[in-house]
Simulated assay, not measured.
Amino acid sequence: MSLVREFREFAVKGNVIDLAVGVIIGAAFGKIVDSLVSDVIMPIVGLVFGKLDFSNLFLVLGEAPAGTAMTLDALRKAGVPVLAYGSFLTIVVNFIILAFIIFMMVKQVNRLKREEPAAAPAAPAPTPEDIVLLREIRDSLKKG
């Protein structure tokens, strides 16, 4: 029974729950970034480079059976080896954007966590003139 108890204690610790929430939010965030890349950024990049559709950029590495359409999906279904470098480019752009967003988030969190430097101690207040005069009188009496 101690194994079950240990597992329960492990599973309900804050770190495990925080990790689970992070994974779920990360997966959802990844889908948002994937959509941003494939539905917004890559079409603009394709337009700039002459209406290229990066998702259909590929290199056929084998013989395609007769009558097979020369599309990426058709070649994959026919079992023809295909180097789909357009999909790879899209995923690389996706990764770069996601990594940059995570970098900016970590940078912001670190900035918020940084403690502000301790304030310099206040300069001592100037000694009032009457105190200065009394000290001078005292010192002159000690000498004389």
Rank of each mutant, 00 (worst) to 15 (best):
F103H: 07
R8M: 14
A78N: 11
S55C: 13
I25F: 00
E116S: 10
P126F: 11
D34W: 14
R76G: 12
T90C: 05
K142Q: 06
D39E: 09
A74D: 12
F29I: 04
V21I: 13
L57E: 14
R8T: 07
S35K: 11
G46I: 07
L133E: 00
G144R: 03
A64N: 10
M70Y: 12
A27R: 02
D34L: 09
G22E: 00
L133F: 04
D39F: 01
G144I: 09
R138M: 05
L72C: 03
K107Q: 07
I24S: 06
I24M: 06
S140F: 10
F103D: 10
L57Q: 09
E136P: 00
S35F: 14
L134Q: 10
R135G: 04
L75N: 09
L112F: 14
I44A: 13
L36D: 08
R135C: 07
F10V: 05
A123S: 00
L3V: 10
S55D: 12
R5M: 10
L83D: 08
A122R: 05
V80H: 01
G14P: 09
A74P: 09
P117K: 05
L75D: 00
E9R: 09
M1F: 11
T127Y: 03
E115L: 15
R76Y: 11
G30C: 13
F58Q: 03
G62P: 08
F58P: 02
A11F: 02
M105I: 10
I102P: 04
P43T: 02
L72D: 02
R114N: 04
P128I: 02
V106Q: 12
E63A: 08
V60E: 09
V93M: 06
G67A: 09
A66N: 15
I41S: 15
V21E: 00
P65K: 11
L98T: 15
I96T: 08
K107A: 00
L3D: 01
R111D: 11
G14H: 12
E6K: 01
I17N: 13
L89K: 12
P124F: 07
F95L: 13
L83E: 06
Q108S: 09
V82D: 04
V92Q: 03
G30A: 15
F100D: 08
F49H: 08
L57K: 06
P121I: 03
L47S: 14
V45E: 13
S35R: 13
L59M: 14
P121G: 08
V82F: 06
D130A: 04
F88G: 14
T68S: 15
